[in-house]
């Protein structure tokens, strides 16, 4: 084992140009991969939040509709399996919530003498796809002024999010394959450069794993170094993005970027695993072809 590691490091420096070239290629690939990762995670995050905000249906009640009638509607709604939650929101409570949301600008709301908000029923559906059915049912009620829900927006968002996720995964998949090919070619060159040594090792009776060990470690080393470099660069880029856009996005979407610590820690763990796998797969593939028997 220690022999393999020693040999791998020796080789790494002896074939400096080759190792460096493949480290750079894989770093570049992982960098792109990391940026896609950031994009996908953040888009998913934003989408999830927006979805949460919009998966509710607000039913505005006419002033004549009393609380008992509202309760009757709520009971009917709660009986539907599609409905997760339905509750009565009084106009006073609605105003109080609004004031909280306005924060230090709440005095603006006090300018109006009368509370303009109606009583309402807030409905949360389990699946946004079921919203239509619930809406149809709500429309059969008497004593409602109107309702709002934004199914299309949410659905479009979900579709976009899915698309970005699938596209991201596809691109990530191909990038990973390219990395494996890069590693396997590098290892192949290293195997060829040491062909004589390997053939002697075989004749003297070195075990296959003893011969393969250094190349396997070599591949893993290339993968890990590349992973480390790319995580560093991605982290740097992410900090910059946070600096520039972080607060603005917070206001715009009421959901900022996924916090960098969470993001980078996960990315580091994923890339470490990915680096090791890419390196190991790459060298095993080239060794299967060149070091058998």
């Amino acid at each position: 084992m220690s022999y393999s590691i020693k040999q791998a490091f020796k080789q790494f420096f002896r074939n400096g140009a080759m190792s460096t070239a493949s480290v750079f290629s894989i770093t570049a690939i992982l960098l792109i991969l990391g940026l896609f990762f950031l994009l996908v995670v953040n888009v998913s995050n934003v989408a999830a939040r927006i979805e949460k905000d919009f998966d509710s249906i607000q039913v505005y009640l006419l002033n004549e509709t009393d609380e008992a009638a509202a309760q009757y509607m709520i009971d009917g709604l709660m009986a539907m399996p599609e409905v997760q939650e339905a509750f009565f929101l009084s106009r006073e409570q609605a105003m109080a919530d609004l004031k909280v949301r306005f924060g230090d600008k709440a005095y603006l709301l006090d300018l109006r003498q009368e509370n303009p908000l109606p009583n309402s029923i807030m409905i949360t559906v389990g699946l946004i796809e079921d919203a239509d059915k619930v809406v149809e049912y709500v429309k059969t009620f008497e004593g409602i002024e109107g309702l709002t829900y934004s199914k299309e927006t949410v659905e479009r968002l979900i579709k976009l999010n899915r698309f970005i996720q699938y596209a991201g995964l596809t691109i990530i998949f191909f990038l990973v394959i390219i990395s494996v090919i890069v590693v396997s070619n590098t290892i192949k060159l290293m195997v060829l450069a040491r062909e004589r040594e390997i053939s002697i090792m075989k004749y003297v009776g070195a075990t296959n794993w003893f011969i393969r060990g250094p190349f396997l470690v070599e591949g893993i080393l290339i993968g890990l170094v590349s992973a480390g470099l790319s995580v560093g660069i991605v982290a740097f880029i992410y900090y910059k993005i946070e600096d520039v856009f972080g607060t603005d996005l917070l206001v715009m979407l009421s959901s900022g970027l996924v916090p960098h610590r969470f993001m980078i820690e996960n990315l580091a763990a994923i890339f470490a695993a990915l680096g090791v796998s890419i390196g190991a797969c790459g060298s095993i593939i080239s060794m299967r072809r060149f070091l058998d028997t």
Binding site: K202, Y203, V204, G205, A206, T207, N208, T293
Partner: peptide
């Protein structure tokens, strides 16, 4: 078997 070859070659 492949694993026994090194022993032979030694």
């Amino acid at each position: 078997s492949n694993r026994e070859i090194p022993k032979l070659r030694r």
